[in-house]
Structure formats: C-alpha cells, structure tokens
C-alpha cells in the first residue's frame, strides 16, 4: 500500500488517487456493513471480540495502573472550608449513628413489650388499648400513681384494669381526653380481690405504699385457717362486668406467709410480677366494641400463636 502511495505522489496524478481512495472507501463501508450485520445476527464476532479483549484488556489494566496515581492528585488538594464542611458532615453523621446504636436496645425492648402485650390480650381474651407510662407520681404525695398517654379519646374511662405483659399493674382512677391516671397495685388504697391459683382460696391484696426496691403486697385470705404455699401464684378474682378488675390476670407470687395470733386471718406476702420501677408499655383492658382513636390490641386466635 505504501509503495502505491509513493507512486501516486511521485507522479502527482490526482485522478487515479481519487478513484482509488473512493473504491477503498466503498470497500471499507461495505466491510463495516458486513460486520454490523454479522454482529446483529449474532455470535459470529464473539471470537474476534474475545481476542481483542485478551490483548487490549491487559493494556487497559496497565494504563489504569499508571493513570490511577495521577488521578488521585486532585484529591490531595482541599480548601480549608471544604475540609471543615466535611468534618462537620461526618460529625453529624457520627452522632446520628451513635444515637441509633444507643437506642437499638430500647427499640428492641419496645418491640418485645408489644409482642408480650399482644400475647396477653390473647391469653385473657380481652381487647387492650396500648399506652405508655409518661409520668410517675412523686412519693411525697404518699400515693403510687402513674399517668399514661391514652385517655377518653382512646376509649379509656375510670375503673378499667391496667396490665402489662408481666401481669396486673393497677386500675384507671380518672381519665382526661388524652391522658389517664392509674393507681398502681402498690398504693395503700389499692385493694384487689385475688385468688391463689393452686388452691382457689380467695382474699384481698393491699398495697404497702412502697414503689422502690422489693415492693410487696399483702394478701389477706378470707379463710384464716388456710396456709398458703410459697411460690403459689395469685391472680385476680374479677369483678362484675370486669370493673375495676377483670378476672384471671396474674398478680404475683407468694414469697412468705405470716400468721399473727391476734388477727383471725393470715398475712401472705406477694411479690408482684410487674416491675413497677420500669413501667413503660401497658395495656388497658376495655370492653370489646370500644371506639378508640388508636390501634387496639385484639386477642388473636390461640391456634395461630
């Protein structure tokens, strides 16, 4: 080809050169069309593609290896304000992630509480309004009450049973539109009709006005001659129409039995199942068909659990 070119230039005849280049063009365009057709039909050019890839691929790899360090050069230069912005951004991100890590345990516990509450609703066959404890009454007032974040708009009114996934918490004393006050079992004025699970003996549980530490309840059995067993479980006895207490909610376990000769009944000490110092999610047992502005925890089918 080079030889022919030399001849054309040497002779300086443009016409044949023109004709020759035109025929080259036609030939090349036709070749291209053929190639496109072959590739369009499929498969025929794969070996060629692979071959070129085998040769050019390593070349590209090597070139990239040479280029990469230079490509990094612009990253060495930063403005001070740019760096400050970056530090700020990363600090914010870090704080956010730290917060996420810190609240993971809380989220997990909340989920477990909701699961437990749903389970309780199923066991008791009762509809529950979920609520969170938002305030504890001070000990100076000598009464053990808490405020929950659900009120009449959620279908809560006075004299409803409040429980959580461990057992009985107390009853609703009064309710405003969005909050309700709950008397805990531990309050001195709280009296709950209870029954010992092992013997069906009935009695009354009274709070002792202590919240912290190993808060206990006193159970006074109606049958003075009966001796309760340690470890026996006390459940609610239940009232008419489920107010203020629905039946069958676990309250606590017998930890000690005292008999005093002066009184006709024996005093039984009950340790409640509920940890009153860390109350969070509670459920308020409402009659079925209650209208509520929040999702109710409804008893599921026993078989599905």
């Amino acid at each position: 080809m080079a030889g022919r070119e030399k001849r054309w230039r040497g002779l300086d005849r443009l016409e044949p050169a023109d004709r020759s280049s035109r025929s080259t063009l036609v030939a090349l365009v036709l070749t291209c069309a053929t190639l496109i057709t072959l590739d369009h039909v499929g498969g025929a050019l794969d070996p060629a593609r692979r071959l070129v890839g085998e040769v050019v691929g390593p070349a590209e790899d090597a070139a990239n290896g040479v280029v990469a360090p230079f490509e990094a050069i612009p990253r060495w230069f930063h403005t001070k304000s740019g760096l400050e912005d970056r530090v700020e951004e990363l600090e914010a991100q870090n704080a956010q992630l730290k917060q996420q890590v810190a609240t993971t345990a809380l989220d997990r516990n909340r989920l477990a509480e909701y699961d437990g509450l749903a389970g309780t609703a199923t066991t008791l066959h009762h509809v529950l309004v979920p609520a969170h404890v938002i305030a504890y009454g001070p000990a100076q007032s000598f009464s053990q009450t808490v405020t929950i974040d659900a009120g009449t708009s959620s279908g809560i009114h006075a004299d409803l049973t409040v429980l959580n996934n461990d057992g009985l918490v107390g009853r609703v004393l009064s309710a405003t539109r969005t909050t309700a006050t709950v008397v805990l079992l531990l309050d001195r004025h709280s009296v709950v009709g209870g029954r010992l699970g092992g013997s069906m003996e009935v009695g009354f549980l009274q709070g002792r006005g202590e919240l912290s530490g190993g808060a206990t309840l006193d159970l006074k059995l109606n049958d003075g001659a009966f001796v309760a067993n340690e470890g026996d479980t006390a459940v609610t006895w239940g009232s008419e129409d489920g107010a203020p207490y629905i039946a069958g909610v676990p309250i606590g376990k017998v930890t000690a039995v005292y008999s005093s000769p002066r009184e006709t009944s024996r005093r039984v000490e009950i340790k409640p199942f509920v940890d009153f110092t860390s109350l969070d999610l509670v459920g308020v047992a409402v009659p079925s068909g209650t209208r509520s502005d929040r999702g109710l925890v409804k008893p599921g089918k026993e078989a599905t659990r």
Binding site: L35, D39, V56
Partner: peptide, 28 residues
Amino acid sequence: GPQFAAILGFVGGLLLDLAPPADHYAGR
C-alpha cells in the same frame, strides 16, 4: 489523505468496537 485515513479509521473503529468495555454492534 483519504485512503490512508479511511483505512486507519476502519482499524481504529474496529478496535473501539471490539475492545473490552464496548457492548454495541461491532462495525459501528
């Protein structure tokens, strides 16, 4: 001139068409 450039263009284009990242029909 045209002839040399057309041939060079053909070879270069084919390289572009067949070299690894290329995904289109060869010959374009």
